[in-house]
Each structure stands twice: as C-alpha cells, then as structure tokens.
Design a protein around this nucleic acid. Structure first.
Length: 469
RNA sequence: GGCGGUGUAGCCAAGUGGUAAGGCACAGGUCUGCAAAACCUCGAUCAUCGGUUCAAAUCCGAUUACCGCCUCCA
C-alpha cells in the first residue's frame, strides 16, 4: 500500500486516488528565460520517477506540468537580447524538451503555457473579484490573502509574521496599491514598452501564481490527486494557488502536496539556484557527463532528500549504473547457451526481490531502498548466469524484472545494440588465435576493439562483448 | 525570531524500541593464458549530554552544527 508524505499535513499518508485506477498530478514547471539547471532537472526527474512508479502500480496517470512563459525575468532577458518575449521563451521551451528528453523524462500529458490561457486567467480573476476575494487597485488586481481562512496552512506560516515580513520587502508603489502587505498580485498592470493583454480591469499580464490555479483546474479539475514542485515553491507559490483555487471553487484543491528537495553545491551545501548564480545547466552538463548517469544519480535519491552534487557522486552513479548494465548484458549473453525450462527456486527469489522493491517504493518512493533491491537482483542474475546449467525462462524473468525496475528510475537496459559483422568476425579470429595459443594476436585484437569502445570478456559460455561509453 | 529538514563507517546511504541494509572507494582471495566481468572476505555503536525502558541510532528533554523557507527561485 503506497504511502506518501503530504506536505500539507506534514505526515505520511496512505495514498488514495480520487478514482481507483487513475491519478491526476500537476507539477510546477520552469520559468523559461534560461536553460534549466540540474536543480530544476532534479524536480522534473523526481516527479517523472514518481509518475513511473504510479504507472508501474497500474494507475493511468494524467501528468500536467506548466511553462511560465511570461514574467519580469523573461521580459528583462528578452529586452536585453532585443528580441520579443516569445522568441525567447520558445527557445528555452525547446531546450527544456531536449534536455529532459536526454534525461529520459516521459513527456507530460500536457505542458500548458500561461500565455495560452489568458482568457481563462481573466475569467478566473473576475470571479474572484465578484466574490470579494480580489480587488482592482490602480490597474492591477490583488488577492485578499487574509480573507482566505486557511492562508498559511500549507507552509505553517503565521499571518502576523507574514505581514511583518512582507511589509519589509514590498516597494512603496506596492504598499500604496495593496490593502495588506501579504496580498499578492493576480494581474499586473502594464508598464511602458511591455507586452500586455487586454482585460476588463485594464491592460496587463497575469501574476505568477494564478496560471497554475487556472491551468491545473482546467486540465485536471478543481480537485485532483497530487500537486508537486520544489520545496521552495511551498511558500508563497503553492500557498497562493490553494487560496485562489479554493476561494473560487469552494472545494478542496490538491489532495496530496509533494515537494522535492534541492540540489546543493559546494562545501556549504548551498542551494543551487539561478539567483545565486551557482548553477550548472543540464545543457552544459550532458556534454560532459552521460545523461543516463545524471538521470540515475537524480532518480535513485529519494525525492525529498537533498542531493549534494559533486564529482564523487557522479562517479559513484557511473559505477552503479555500469554494474546494473553489466549484469543485464551478462544475462543476455548467457541466454544463448541456456536450456529450455525454468528454475523455480530462483524464480521465487526474483519475485521476493520484486516484492521487497515494491515495499520500499511504497514508503514514500524510497528510491534508496528501491535501488538496493535492484542491486540484489543484479547480483542474483550474475550468480545465476555463472552456473554451469541455466534455464532460458529464468534468465528472461530476471532480465525482464531488471529492466522493469530500472525503467522506473528512467534507465532503459534493453536497448543495447548487437555486434555487427565486423566485430563478430574479429571475435571469431581472436578465438581461433586463442585456441592456437597465439596470445599476442588475440590480445592485439582485443586491444584494437577496446580502442573502439568495445570490451571483450571471455566466459565459460563463450566470448561476450559490450560497449563502453 | 517563526516554521521545516538534516547530523549513522573514508564517502553516499538504509534503518523510528530488541544488540547497525545496501552501494562507492580501499585491500585480500576465487575464476582467467593474461585480462575484464563476476563472486567471496574485510570496516561503524549511530553529533553531544542527560532521561525513560529489561532493552534506544530509534522515545523524551537540553545542547550543538549545517541546510532551506519566511522576498523571485525546482
């Protein structure tokens, strides 16, 4: 039985979806004014892994993740480059798609964009105004935070302290427009030379939080199962989403709030963030590091835990991933020399490992314990494939399970290509040389292939090969 | 200051009452023509102090260090 840590209650709760067989989830996506960094990617990967596990459990998952494609930073960056905002955002949306595909993130069911939902946003705001939950002030629209009785509930914030804090940060202009310092903007009045949309309350553009309320409601309904995002979004972004949506819909917004932990860098384990400037973009990183390794590193850490990013972690992930891949290759190679049939005892062990895996992942997607079971399975496979006699059905059972469980972490094992004729012929030549004890020649062939990234390994069941990248 | 989260072997990390999973690295061994891969062996009393208990890493209290949120941020 799946349990998830709900940030709203700060408790582990049994996961009960609204509909028995399906899960609706919304994950806050990036503001697209730059390449995503590995902290952003971590969030994407974390929820992709969660999604994959839900699908493994048999749920049909509707996965919606937005692009924030209009905001101050986008406008600033576009102005700096002297291009229109949408040229900029399209560039980085394309880059997002490429980068996340490289990390083997499954495409979302839908990636709605704020600017494509302006009409819906305006309607939503109008309803809030009509209801007295929002007010127009000098061409902008603000939400009366205090009027929403549960404001601060998600992030455990005290209203008085929030007001105190907020009052120190807002500009004089904002102070004049807001009834209360904690009120947040739904519609920003246009400034000179800015892109704007027409609305009944004036020319302007949507505030940040409103788009997620509008688009999640539109694509998933007023009440849906999971709302996810980085822990830094808990306040104010998610708090505001709840206030907006529940004020308008008069019903519960998301049932479970899941927040992922940060990627940190440096000796101080400092949060990686665009504003701190201490980030590594995925775009750059995957030129240096195999994206599979990056994916593995990120998805085998439980989503709420921080990841202290450094070279050691990368190396460790490389080694561990290689171990799983080797086990898979070793079994695949052994398949050709297997007898027909199965080994019930091993089959039972495989089933036990899978059950253990599920127990681990059912505990709030505990990936560390989950991947430990994958290592168990890999080890079992290695031990089995070195037996004198093996059965094909058991080998394929291990292969299938290994592939299935690894795929939850975004690792595809079943894509290794086969030896081409040239390689096959060289292997044959080398084995002839070995028979004739011409080890100089056999080693030469092996070294030459190694140069090309092809590793030969001699086993009792013949010579096997694998590619190393 | 408020709220949330961390502190377990060289490193990563599991474990929420019954004498510390797993991985990486290191070392030794088996196998091999040599190698590779694989397998086997090898390490910690759990930030500190105090308390509860027959029994605590695990509960309670205090202390301490670090991170995050409280303003844009995945």
């Amino acid at each position: 039985m799946l349990k998830v840590y709900n940030s709203f209650t700060n408790q582990l709760e049994t996961f009960k979806p609204i509909n028995k067989r399906s899960v609706k989830m919304y994950v806050c996506g990036p503001t697209v004014y730059n390449y995503i960094h590995i902290g952003n990617a971590r969030s994407v990967v974390a929820f992709d892994t969660i999604r994959r596990y839900l699908e493994y459990l048999g749920y049909y998952v509707t996965y919606v993740s937005n692009f924030t494609d209009i905001d101050d930073k986008i406008i600033n960056e576009a102005n700096k480059e002297g291009i229109s905002y949408d040229v900029l955002t399209n560039r980085y949306i394309d880059a997002f798609m490429e980068d996340t595909a490289a990390l083997n993130v499954k495409p979302a069911t839908n990636n709605p964009r704020a600017t494509e939902h302006i009409d819906d946003i305006i309607k939503f705001i109008e309803e809030l105004i009509d209801d007295g939950m929002a007010y127009v002030s000098n061409g902008s629209v603000y939400f009366r935070a205090k009027k929403f009785k549960n404001y601060g509930k998600l992030s455990n914030k005290n209203i008085d302290e929030l007001e105190n804090g907020a009052s120190q940060h807002i500009t004089e202009a904002e102070a004049n427009e807001k009834e209360d310092p904690i009120d947040f903007v739904l519609w920003k009045k246009v400034k000179l030379n800015e892109v704007y949309w027409d609305a009944p309350f004036g020319k302007g553009r949507p505030g940040w939080h409103i788009e997620c309320s509008v688009m999640s409601n539109k694509y998933l309904g007023n009440n849906f199962d999971i709302h996810g995002g980085g822990i830094d979004l808990e306040f104010p972004h998610h708090e505001n989403e709840i206030a907006q949506s529940e004020s308008k819909n008069k019903e519960k917004f998301a049932n479970y709030w899941l927040h992922n932990g940060f990627v940190t860098v440096g000796d101080q384990n400092e949060k990686m963030s665009k504003s701190l400037g201490n980030f590594i973009t995925v775009h750059d990183l995957i030129k240096e590091v195999n994206p599979e390794v990056v994916r593995f590193l990120m998805s085998t850490t439980q989503y709420r835990r921080p990841i202290a990013y450094n070279q050691e972690k990368v190396t460790e992930a490389e080694n561990n991933l290689k171990k799983i891949k080797n086990a898979y290759n070793n079994l695949e190679h052994r398949m050709s020399s297997a007898d027909e049939g199965n080994d019930p005892k091993i089959d039972q062990e495989v089933r036990q490992i899978q059950a253990n895996f599920q127990d681990a992942m059912d505990d709030d997607f505990n990936a560390q314990n989950g991947i430990a079971e994958v290592y168990e399975l890999a080890k079992l496979g290695n031990i089995y494939s070195e037996r004198d006699f093996v059965f094909d059905k058991t080998i394929s059972l291990i292969l299938n399970r290994l592939n299935e469980l690894s795929s939850i972490f975004g690792i595809d094992l079943a894509t290794e290509d086969l030896a081409d004729d040239e390689v096959k012929s060289l292997i044959e030549q080398r084995n002839n040389a070995r028979k004739n004890k011409d080890f100089a020649l056999s080693d030469k062939i092996r070294d030459e292939l190694k140069e090309k990234g092809i590793i030969l390994e001699d086993t009792n069941a013949g010579t096997r090969f694998r590619r190393e990248n």
